[in-house]
Every structure is written in C-alpha cells, then in structure tokens.
C-alpha cells in the first residue's frame, strides 16, 4: 500500500493528452454526418421531457439512457485501447443507463417543468453547459471543431447534461428511496474520475 501511495497520479497515467484528444476527433470523424441526427434526437428528447404526457417523459428517459449506452459502447470501446481501466468506466456508463431505464419502468420518466427553485436553475445551467457550451468551450480552448466533446458522444458533456436534467426534473421520492440522489451518483462519480484524469494529464 505504501508503494502505491508513493506514486503521483501522473505517474499512473498511461497515455498522452494528445492521444486522449485524438479519441474525440476519431469518434466525430466516424459519426459525421450523424451529428445532424444526434442534434435532432437531443432536441426531441428535450421536447418530450417538456411535454405534459407521462409516456413522453418515459420516452425522454429512454433516450437519455440510450445516450449513456452509446457512450459506453463507442467512446469507451475506443478508450479501452489506451486505458486498461476503460472497461470499468464503460460498466459505470452502462449502469447509469440501467438506472435511467429503471426510472422509466418504476417512475415518472424524465419530466422537465418550468424552473422555480435554485435546484432547477442550477440544473438548467448544467444542462445548458453539457448540451451546448461544453463543446464550444473546447473549440474556444483551441481544439479543432472536429475534436470537440459532444453530448451523447463524449462522456463529460453527457454526464454534465444528465446531472443538469436530473436536477431540473420532477422526481418525487418513492417511499424512503431518494431516486434523484441515486441517479446522480454515477454521473458525479464519472466527473470526479474525469477531473482526476485531466489533473494527471495537465500535471504530467
């Protein structure tokens, strides 16, 4: 244990920042022109979540789960080539997809109302960041547009937007079960892992 503790985080990093960034370029290259369809599906998910029909909310939650499954399969499938821990991260994303599908089966789905409380506004901010500003921020930071990170393609904006949508959503407690809290755990865990990865990449 002492031996492990004597490593810096950067010592355990097994790939370079450039190769990590290339993952997003390669994913976007492979997806293009599917980005148009992706944008349409994302808009449809938000539209369904904003409707006042229960079945629409359930479909919106299924679409959000599909985004997590897609990232688990496509992004982490590629990431696994350079990071031995990637299959564990893929399992985390698949787990969140299962949790969202469970929300569809036993709960209200993804129902977005008009923001009223601080939580809603915080959620709106995070969702806006994940869905729109995160890719623009990478572009502004100097990544080529083809290498930017998009919701439902890259894990960070997917997790950020999901946190936001879950904070905005009406998710009543079921008995003693804090549904929202449970659904926030895996996206927050991923963002912690991602933050540590970036910390290591930037301090290597």
């Amino acid at each position: 244990m002492d031996t492990w503790l004597s490593y810096r985080l950067a010592d355990l990093l097994m790939f370079s920042p450039a190769i990590y960034a290339r993952l997003f370029e390669r994913l976007n290259d492979a997806l293009w022109p599917g980005h148009v369809l992706l944008a349409g599906l994302t808009a449809a998910m938000l539209g369904l979540a904003a409707l006042r029909a229960g079945s629409a909310h359930q479909l919106a939650a299924v679409m959000l789960a599909a985004a997590w499954i897609w990232v688990a399969w496509r992004f982490f499938g590629l990431y696994a080539e350079i990071n031995l821990a990637a299959p564990w991260f893929a399992a985390l994303f698949a787990g969140q997809a299962v949790a969202l599908l469970t929300l569809t089966a036993i709960g209200p789905g993804l129902a977005l109302g008009r923001p009223r409380r601080v939580r809603h506004w915080l959620g709106l901010g995070l969702a806006t960041w994940g869905l729109a500003l995160h890719p623009l921020a990478w572009w502004a930071a100097g990544r080529p547009l083809a290498g930017t990170e998009l919701f439902a393609v890259a894990p960070d904006p997917t997790a950020i937007a999901t946190l936001g949508l879950l904070l905005m959503a009406d998710l009543p407690r079921r008995g003693r079960l804090p549904i929202r809290g449970i659904l926030l755990v895996l996206p927050a865990t991923w963002l912690l892992i991602s933050a540590l990865t970036w910390w290591a990449l930037l301090t290597a």
Partner: peptide, 10 residues
C-alpha cells in the same frame, strides 16, 4: 515505450 507508443488503433 511507456505512454509514447500507447496510441491504440489511431
């Protein structure tokens, strides 16, 4: 080759 050659299928 630590880090430098870990480039996957790129």
């Amino acid at each position: 080759t630590w880090i430098t050659f870990n480039v996957g299928s790129d």
